[in-house]
Design a binder for these strands. Structure first.
Lengths: 217, 217
DNA sequence: TCAAAATCGAGACTGAGTCGCAAGACGAGT
DNA sequence: ACTCGTCTTGCGACTCAGTCTCGATTTTGA
């Protein structure tokens, strides 16, 4: 009984102590303060010291919560990646990998639609801050591995190709389409829905090659 | 001592030599010394100070030749990107964009084949050095813009889509395939030719959507 | 209530990248 | 050949990100 009650207590009741909750609160506070400073002064002109002072923390303590300055901005992307991966795994088996990827991205589309103006501002900051640009795409490499694994499962393994480049290539190509669609989306100020951009971008790699070939006959 | 001899060599070898010549010589010297140190100690454990000392320069002066530490390793990639873009522009007009991209990459394949072992070592260092990973990805963005422009020219502009995501999506997808092919190539120690990996990776986005479906149907 | 564990602040330290200044090389005019 | 304005180079000093240690404080679990 003590086992089950303990297990129940850990899982059902709040295993989140004061510490955990405080940690989450501080994280949220830091992110908000940092975004405020970033939008006013720009990312590069804002020092970690300023952010720490804004929330009453020391520089060193801030680095305990966020490993790097970039994590303050990009930290949540890890979560997003996991959610996309879950959505992909939940797609029906008979769906083609490419279409499953397209549908998995709908999770992001919905998240973006929750507050379009906010998202536009955020993506714009990413776009015109080179330091963040590099990290942002690096995060997508993690996504690629996540998605590529599921794609590989769906495609099956080919004994002739011990290291088959196709699953990661497919995942990365889809992410490239996502990026291009996002860029086009912010370029037109969200006038054309992100979902439409994504449809058009992801229709390309699949239809273009043989489409053109058919054209040439 | 080696400092003075090297300094003397630099100033006496070309007393009337042009600055550009000197600059190129120094750049080459730095790159060679840096690569030597990197392969021995690893990228992260080698400081710019060490590299500078190795070639008899001050740290600050080294940064005058290479804007960043990463540029010492990745500087030549800008050139490579231009060459791929040239190769793409030189492809016949009737070729499909996707195939033209595939053929443009042959420039890189040929470069890699010149010294396979050297290339493998170089790519391996890029692969397992996170700091370089970020820059490597950033270079890909420059390539994407370069290639995307030519792709857009070939595809023509659609007045309905002022910012069409398809050209950059196609270019980025191709580059994603290139990356996946390279990764798979180094994963199998070059046992399978890079060109074959690239063929397989780039065949994916085009054939998968209907190819797999045909397979399952 | 008490002891172990985790967190925090402070400060020193490393290393990348920037800036301003002085010294040297180049090219042209005399 | 001389010199003057300009451009390049080298270097010391500086900022900032990120790491580490140490001692003090707080949370947690019993």
């Amino acid at each position: 009984m003590s086992d089950s009650s303990k297990a129940a207590a850990r899982t059902e009741a709040k295993p989140l102590g004061l510490r955990e909750r405080m940690r989450a609160t501080i994280r949220a506070e830091v992110i908000e303060a940092a975004h405020r400073l970033f939008t006013v002064q720009g990312y590069d002109r804002t020092t970690v010291e300023q952010i720490a002072a804004e929330v009453g923390l020391s520089r060193a303590s801030l680095f305990r919560h966020f490993g790097t300055k970039e994590d303050i901005v990009l930290g949540h992307l890890n979560d997003s990646g996991l959610r996309v991966a879950e959505a992909l795994a939940a797609r029906p088996e008979h769906e083609s990998p490419w279409m499953a990827l397209r549908r998995a991205f709908d999770v992001l589309v919905r998240m973006n639609e929750e507050d379009v103006q906010q998202t536009l501002r955020y993506l714009r900051m990413l776009a015109d801050t080179p330091a963040l640009h590099a990290r942002h795409v690096e995060k997508q490499l993690a996504w690629r591995d996540l998605l590529g694994q599921e794609i590989a499962r769906r495609m099956g393994t080919d004994p002739d190709w011990p290291s088959d480049p196709r699953p990661p290539a497919l995942a990365a190509a889809a992410l490239a389409c996502l990026d291009a669609a996002s860029s086009a989306w912010i370029a037109c100020d969200g006038a054309i829905p992100l979902s439409a951009m994504l449809d058009r971008a992801m229709d390309t790699p699949r239809s273009e090659a043989h489409g053109i070939r058919d054209h040439l006959g």
